[in-house]
Each structure stands twice: as C-alpha cells, then as structure tokens.
Design a protein around this nucleic acid. Structure first.
Lengths: 122, 122
DNA sequence: CAGTTATATGAGTAAATATTCATATGTTTG
DNA sequence: CAAACATATGAATATTTACTCATATAACTG
C-alpha cells in the first residue's frame, strides 16, 4: 500500500512537490468563494465600466450624464449600469424621470486605487 | 451664438447636468490609463487565474504542481501563467527542467484582499 | 389623456477568450 | 546522442460578452 501520489486526473505530468500541493490545497478557500471573487474582478475588467466607476467616484450622475461623458449610447450605458448594480458596486435613486447612480461601497475606490498602484509601478 | 450643449454625438438623450459632466471630464485620467487599468482587472477576472494567484500567494509552485492542485491540464495552466506573467502579476525562475512561479508584486495580495472584503460585506 | 423625455431591456451580432489538442522547445540522464 | 520529462505555444473551437437596434416602461407636462 504505497503512498499514492496526488496527481490529478487531468494533469498530464507528475506532481513534483506533493507536500506543497497538499498544504496549499488545505489552505485554499472554497472553489465557490474564488469563483465569486473572479466574478467581482470581471466587472472591473472592462474599460467602459471602469470609466463609469471612476466618474461616479467623482460625482453622482444620471444615465444621460454618463452617456454624454463617455460618448456612448444611453442603451450601452444602461446595460453596463445593470451589471455594476448586480455586482453591488453602484446604487441608484430615482428623482422623477431621472435615475442617479453612485458608488455603493467604499471598497470600489480602494480596489481601483490598488489597481492603479500596480500599473504605475509596473 | 448660443452656448451649445456638450451632448455627445452617440448619446441619444439630452445632457441633464452640463456642469457635472464637464467637471468630471476635466478630472478624468487619460482614456489609455483607464484602459490599462481595466486590462489589469481583466486578468483577475477569471477563476482559474484567481486560483493560481491565490495558490502562489501561499507558496511558490511549479507548473505541474499548479495543474495538479487545480486538476487541470498542464497546457491550460501554462497558457494562463503566460497571461499572468504578461500582466506582471507573476514571475518565474528556472531550475533545471522545472519552472517555478511566484507572485511578482505585493499589490496582487492587496487587490485580492480588497476584492474579498467586498464580497464578504455584500 | 396624449406627447415627450429618461431609462430599461430583449434579441441579435461581432469580437474576445479559455480550453483542448497536437506539437515544439529546453533540460537532464543514460 | 537518444530517451524522458517539464514546460511552452499555435491553431481550432466553444463560450462569453459588449454593443446595437428596436421597443418597453415610467414619470412628467400640457
């Protein structure tokens, strides 16, 4: 009954460091958690949405303001705002016909700042 | 010669708050900067890459280790490591046949931590 | 209530991309 | 040098997705 290596089915090479792999595996968060984390970053990973977030960090704005600022259609902006809202990165309030959007969370700014720090150092 | 509104060509609605739009436009970083920022977040926005980054935050690992840990093919991992390297998120060193990867930058951890903070509060 | 304006949304399309498969490169070992 | 192994990479494919277009919803205005 030899100590069977933990080589995974799909991995077409031999495990080099079982101890490291097992230790890291033990500490890894749930797959679902990391999936959610990736989904969050995916929302930041589009230049239209990043520009919207940046703009909303400066000031609350309505959909039309944002469309004008970015020189894009109202529809395109509205679709992206929906994505941002589902990710809980922005919130909105209605005032008559006009819907104002703003950042939902102080994390948004922190995340953007860290990203900026990375590209400025690179 | 009336003061022509700044309504953008592609925006199919009227600007509501010219003052806000102009002020935000003035403060916006260069389009290229925000594009680069989005490109960086895009790299974090894939669960395979996030899992790789998380693993490398625990320990330096070779390609085969990572493939085994994530139960994915060596090829798939290698392709993603290339993306991570181009984004300067990971670095590598060769030791004989084996190539070891590790995080390139302390920002990586900070960015992931901020992302985690967001999903944990949401 | 009819018209106008602001926003939202469903369907379709074009572009981006993650993985697979086959194969190439690079290094060690016999 | 030949065989073996770790890694890299090009091409093909399937999926995702950002935007457009048409239209719906919602609220104000006369």
């Amino acid at each position: 009954m030899a100590n069977k290596p933990v080589t995974a089915d799909r991995c077409d090479c031999e495990v080099i460091h079982d101890d490291v792999v097992n230790e890291v595996r033990r500490k890894m968060p749930k797959e679902e958690t990391l999936y959610d984390l990736a989904e969050t970053f995916k929302v930041f990973g589009d230049s239209t949405r990043i520009r919207i977030l940046w703009a909303l960090d400066e000031s609350e704005m309505c959909v039309c303001d944002i469309a004008s600022l970015l020189n894009m259609t109202q529809s395109a902006i509205s679709h992206q705002l929906r994505v941002l809202k589902q990710a809980k990165l922005v919130k909105n309030r209605r005032e008559g016909k006009v819907v104002y959007y703003s950042l939902d969370d102080e994390h948004v700014r922190l995340i953007i700042d860290q990203g900026m720090a990375h590209i400025n150092e690179g």
